[in-house]
Amino acid sequence: MPARRLLLCFAAVALSLVATLHHPASGQAREVNLYNGRHYDTDEAIYQEFTRRTGIRVNLIQGDADQLIERIRAEGANSPADVLITVDAGRLYRAQQQGICQRVDSPLLTSRIPEHLRDPQGHWFGFTKRLRVIAYARARVSRSQLSTYEDLVNPRWKGKLLVRSSSHVYNQSLVGALIAWHGEAFVARWARGVVANFARPPQGGDLDQLRALAAGEGDVALVNHYYYLRLLNSPNPADRAVAQQVGLFFPNQGPEERGVHVNLSGACVVATSRNRQAAVAFLEFLSSDFAQEVFAKGNFEFPAVRGVANPMAAIAPATLREDTLNAATYAANGGRALQLMVAAGWR
């Protein structure tokens, strides 16, 4: 009798497990499945508008882009993934290297997205620009003391430079671009100079660097621009107070200079996509004025498409010079950049 009870118990558990198997209906024509490395609640407006205009349903899984790439690889030919979205070029490049992205020939995309913000062969496209800039403590630094990324190794900043860990891809992409411009020997020296100027061992995220500036732990910091804008527009007075004490400086703007480093958030159509048409339509929609404005207003990113009203105009000079090095180039240098930073003691 107890044996039977035990069996019953197991059967019940097994049944409940099977009952929990619920499946996203895959392969139906009117939907598109996003494997999404971007997590901004404001993007929801874009998905809803896309569904409203096209009737195509948007299914979503958000996660770490690297791990979503692993999942797509494991799912193989049957993967339900149609579109992979990431918040930096490095991961898109890695996905492409692993054969996860397919080429898309869309005249609309190639005309709307500037050349340096997409893969030369059309495997992936950038939809927003994220500038890696120098933030400074207004009370202690004058803008005339700032010039370029290269000058951050100036002994003037000894014990005053704040930056996050080298394991973060934003730093890897920036240093990857420096490798492309100056070569590895220069970057190895530069990284040692940066380490020599650290105000503290790298820690925290970009927001933490801004808060440390305001608290007086350092004078200059490397951050992505939108974190500053998020503080400036925060409903929390403490956040706004931090932003008030911090200024943003766009480096490498001189007449002979290449311009500020531009990273991107972008997407690709997955090679095994069963809803290819819907996926391409979705990418094209990301380049629409509607989506571009949501990106800019929701997370303060620069729209990739030229001519879209740019709410960032208030903080960026009209003649802002941007580094037009192709994202694929610096993304490819990311791994080497990390090695050089680690070797220099940039943890």
Partner: peptide, 12 residues
């Protein structure tokens, strides 16, 4: 299509 991947069974 996929029977196991992307289900709560796999997660459990």
């Amino acid at each position: 299509g996929l029977l196991f991947m992307g289900t709560t069974f796999t997660l459990v």
